[in-house]
Design a protein around this nucleic acid. Structure first.
Length: 237
DNA sequence: ATCCGGAAAC
DNA sequence: GTTTCTGGAT
């Protein structure tokens, strides 16, 4: 018995992508009619199931509030009621208003203008906003602006950890850089890759009871044998 | 490390 | 009844 042959991260990440795409097919992300709607969804979905975000978006659409101007005209209290199904509705209503105010004051209310800047510039600008962290910023860049900025989320971190591929201490930036340095810098690839990771982790590589037997990554992954028993999974007593 | 929060899965 | 959800701020 010998170790598995050493593979460079680029080969591993591409093989992983290939396996996911072959199993799930194209995901056609992000489900939105405009970059602005993508950004609204990105803020609303923070630590929130997408099904709940859909309800909030539907409320906004029904009220014709899915634009920068319309959303700014909507009183905070009213906005809270519309996005209530998405949870954290007080802070999210503030974040939406702050986001729109920034667009109005600096980009004539047009998100496309913000997204017309080079990726690094637009990213820093988004990160300045209260309520826009790295994942939200990268989601807006990638899915709203077609910028090749890899999106990292809790699913991504969990998957890499279980595959024993987590770089460094596993900070957001370390993981993002890991993907971006070891893959072709391609917005379409990053778009599909993140979406595939999400669907994999929702349906198979779940936090609690992962379906390892039927997982499309079977053979490529050694979890749970490779799991560190003290740092992952339910507390064992 | 804790708070925000409704909805649905478990 | 408890956990989890395409996080971020304090």
């Amino acid at each position: 018995m010998h170790q598995s042959p050493p593979r460079d991260p680029g080969t591993t990440l591409l093989a992983l992508y290939q396996r996911l795409f072959d199993h799930f097919g194209p995901q056609n992300w992000w489900p939105a009619d405009s970059p602005f709607e993508t950004a609204v969804g990105a803020i609303l979905t923070q630590n929130t199931a997408w099904t709940n975000v859909e309800k909030a978006i539907a409320n906004l659409r029904r009220a014709d509030a899915l634009s920068c101007e319309a959303l700014l005209k909507t009183p905070r209290k009213q906005l809270e009621e519309m996005i209530r199904p998405a949870g954290f509705f007080r802070q999210k209503s503030e974040r939406l208003h702050l986001f729109c105010r920034h667009l109005r004051d600096h980009h004539d209310g047009n998100l496309e203008r913000l997204l017309a800047a080079p990726t690094a510039v637009a990213r820093l600008e988004l990160l300045e906003l209260k309520g826009v962290g790295p994942e939200t910023a990268d989601s807006i860049l990638l899915y709203g602006g077609n910028h090749a900025s890899f999106v990292v989320d809790a699913y991504t971190r969990r998957l890499l950890q279980r595959l024993d591929l987590l770089p460094g201490r596993g900070t957001y930036d370390e993981i993002r850089t890991f993907f971006m340095r070891n893959l072709p810098v391609d917005a379409a690839l990053f778009n599909e890759y993140h979406a595939l990771i999400v669907i994999l982790c929702k349906d198979y590589c779940r936090k609690r009871n992962p379906r390892c037997q039927s997982c499309p990554l079977i053979g490529l992954c050694r979890y749970p044998e490779s799991a560190h028993p003290l740092t992952e999974g339910k507390k064992r007593r």
